[in-house]
């Protein structure tokens, strides 16, 4: 942590994504206007004013990297999978797949659906890997990126942001939740039919004489599913990341505080192993349950 920035700036710096979009300039305090160029945001305020058509490069990069890593691993196992005695990586992959398969069988009763189990596997492993980035000490990768950006492009390292945990970006978690929501809608329409789905949304729980109330209640219920799904993961990971950052701010406060911070960080990291696994598991199980609900016809 460089001496010239305050704790608050340090924390803000860590919570800012590397955003690419239309460059903005502050023409007067609080008022921003596009410059017409495209580039990386140099401050949180500029990133915020880039609007919807900007992209968090760090989130995308890390999530795709981790997803590709996961797919590469499982694909390499699938290519040389043997029905004999499993060894090495196949053992590991099979352990995960068996676990996912058991969980999905336990909570999904929609018959022969070829999507849910691979979806659950992707969610569990991908989310777990993305969460796992939280255990890397908060400054390591951002510092590497900042210093290399400064060395290569000659930009001020204080204006280079890099968040390595994609699940602390609500875009990532809500994006996944929205995809799950689209699948829920797809299967609801497919299994129950348009009429069935609409009657499910309007005729429960109070019968046809309370149709408006039913509609409001059921719509809220339906919409709350993806939101709670995405925000639960985001909230947990964001809070965990925040604690790591707060612990990291103590390193600058002398040897005693620094050692204490080290102990705290180890303790929190150990506790966090539980949280990252649990959150990945919860996301997977809830997705399975929601899709199971989408498959069930109410009578």
């Amino acid at each position: 942590m460089a001496s010239e920035i305050t704790t608050s700036e340090y924390i803000k710096h860590h919570l800012q994504n590397l955003t690419f979009g239309q460059k903005q300039t502050e023409i007067e305090p609080g008022v921003w206007a596009p410059t017409g160029e495209w580039g990386f945001a140099m401050s949180p305020a500029e990133a915020a004013n880039m609007g919807f058509w900007s992209i968090n490069v760090d989130t995308m990069l890390m999530s795709i990297l981790l997803g590709a890593l996961m797919m590469w691993f499982f694909r390499s196992v699938a290519k040389k999978v043997s029905t004999g005695v499993p060894t090495g990586s196949q053992n590991f992959a099979e352990m995960i797949i068996d676990f996912i398969d058991d969980t999905v069988r336990g909570s999904f009763s929609g018959g022969k659906n070829k999507l849910v189990a691979p979806l659950a596997l992707t969610i569990f492993v991908w989310v777990f890997l993305m969460n796992l980035m939280d255990l890397i000490p908060v400054d390591v990768i951002p510092q590497i990126v900042m210093q290399s950006a400064a060395a290569i492009f000659g930009v001020d390292p204080h204006h280079v942001y890099f968040k390595i945990v994609p699940t602390t970006d609500p875009n990532a978690t809500l994006g996944m939740a929205i995809f799950v929501f689209m699948l829920m809608l797809y299967y609801s329409f497919k299994i129950k039919g348009t009429g069935g789905f609409i009657s499910e949304l309007t005729l429960q729980p109070f019968g046809k004489w309370a149709l408006p109330i039913n509609t409001v209640l059921e719509t809220v219920t339906l919409l709350s599913k993806p939101f709670s799904l995405g925000l639960r993961l985001f909230g947990n990971m964001y809070a965990g990341e925040m604690v790591f950052i707060l612990i990291a701010t103590m390193y600058g406060a002398g040897l005693a505080m620094g050692s204490f911070a080290g102990l705290l960080q180890i303790g929190w990291a150990i506790f966090h192993i539980l949280i990252i696994t649990l959150q990945a598991f919860i996301f997977m199980v809830l997705t399975t349950v929601y899709l199971d609900m989408a498959h069930q016809e109410h009578h």
Binding site: L15, Q16, N17, T19, G21, A47, A48, M50, G51, F52, W53, S54, I55, N56, T59, M60, S63, P166, D169, P170, N171, A172, L174, G175, M176, I178
Partner: peptide
């Protein structure tokens, strides 16, 4: 922490 096109990318 802004909602932007990243969500589509994700």
């Amino acid at each position: 922490m802004n909602i932007n096109a990243t969500i589509i990318g994700q």
